[in-house]
Design a protein around this nucleic acid. Structure first.
Lengths: 227, 227
DNA sequence: CATTTATGACTGACCAGTCAGTCATCGTCA
DNA sequence: TGACGATGACTGACTGGTCAGTCATAAATG
């Protein structure tokens, strides 16, 4: 059982994945096909879990959406619960990779943060990744494993990185509030709120997250000279 | 059916609610007893929904916790779904009442916000109310009625109030960032993040929300003279 | 005693997880 | 090369259990 999972994962990593098409392009390699199916399941499960939540999601629906029989799901995952946990991991890993590939500190700290946060907003707000954040907030307390993983892989790293940036800003004299380094959350908070806001209240009062970000940075770095 | 609901609600509003005891103190008034039971159900349901989420909560458990038979729940609520929606309303209303009973602007704006936010943190963080916020974030997308209600009754009012405070601060020269009035979210964000943080990550890295609040206010109002 | 309110056993729908059977693919041998 | 048996990925009908909602009956009330 576990052996199969490992094999599938290995295949996924190894094969160049010849085509995105599912039925259209018949693939010779068995393991490759298996990996493709696993991907389809992950994708479908993601969608279903996000829109219905863990408890209300039916495995039949996931199977149908993935174009697979229900039994197939159990070839790749032990049960619904561990499927959810693995799924979150699978989706988050690439995000972590991106975080690690931060550019070296060139230019002002403000520009650094602005670029970084701007990308974050663009890639997260209104996308599936944003919903994933909401999903983790929603299901976290019932899935300590997920909350742990998310804290370890995303939150603590993000905080450490932000703290380093803040300290750099302080050292360079761009930031005057030295206590800020103790609470990187303050810098990140508006971006998080923006994500949640969009998925809950966009309909009532859409939020210009980028503009808000700019105002927030003005608060931290002092108002920008509009020369 | 609807008639009964209305009647129960009216009774709840009208009766002085003689005693908190459930079985201990037999009450003569029928409507009063009904209201008491309704309260017990609301309380129990709250607890269950918070810990398990909407879909995973069993009405049998709510009934047992409330010390009531399952059928009784259906004397007060149409079904599970509308029960959830009414419940959120019932619990939020007192909070709104408190928000409306804000003291008149005396003292510095900073002190005003500090006191207000301090109370907010004390009363929300780590309490059932905090979990309610998380619950709304979690279930909001699946219960537009809940999200709408919450936006209308809490978010929009809170934002308006905060905006007024910010404008007052600007008028008095305490706040220099005039753009801040356009995004009261920035002021509120750290408090919200603190609430979510505590219910997800308290175990990994407890957060001193009050200290963070102080740092954040320093950022907005300028560092405090420690004379 | 009539009426309102409460009960909890019951029903039917629903769904996670199983497993006997099918069939495409692969290695092997003539 | 082509045929053939072994393998195991895949299927989907089925099972056992769960749970929202109902309703006949009982208790409380006035």
């Amino acid at each position: 059982m576990i052996k199969k999972l490992t094999k599938a994962a290995a295949a996924e990593a190894a094969t160049p994945k010849p085509e995105a098409g599912e039925e259209a392009a018949p693939v010779s390699n068995r393991a490759a096909r298996a990996a493709e199916r696993r991907d389809a399941i992950v994708e479908a499960a993601m969608e279903e879990f996000i829109t219905r939540g863990f408890a209300a999601t039916r495995l039949d629906d996931i199977a149908k959406r993935a174009g697979v029989a229900k039994g197939t799901i159990y070839l790749h995952f032990k049960d619904k619960e561990s499927m959810f946990e693995e799924l979150v991991r699978t989706v988050i890993v690439p995000v972590v990779a991106k975080l690690n590939a931060l550019p070296p500190p060139t230019g002002s700290v403000r520009d650094l943060i602005e670029t970084f946060a701007g990308n974050f907003l663009k890639e997260v707000i209104g996308t599936r990744r944003g919903d994933l954040v909401r999903l983790i907030v929603a299901e976290g307390p019932r899935f300590p494993a997920v909350a742990d993983f998310y804290y370890r892989e995303v939150v603590s790293r993000g905080m450490a990185g932000m703290r380093a940036l803040i300290e750099l800003g302080i050292a360079r004299g761009e930031i005057h509030q030295t206590n800020l380094a103790r609470y990187p959350q303050i810098v990140i908070a508006p971006a998080m709120i923006a994500v949640i806001w969009q998925s809950l209240f966009a309909r009532h009062a859409p939020l210009d997250a980028h503009d808000m970000l700019r105002v927030h940075l003005d608060l931290i770095f002092g108002e920008r000279r509009t020369t």
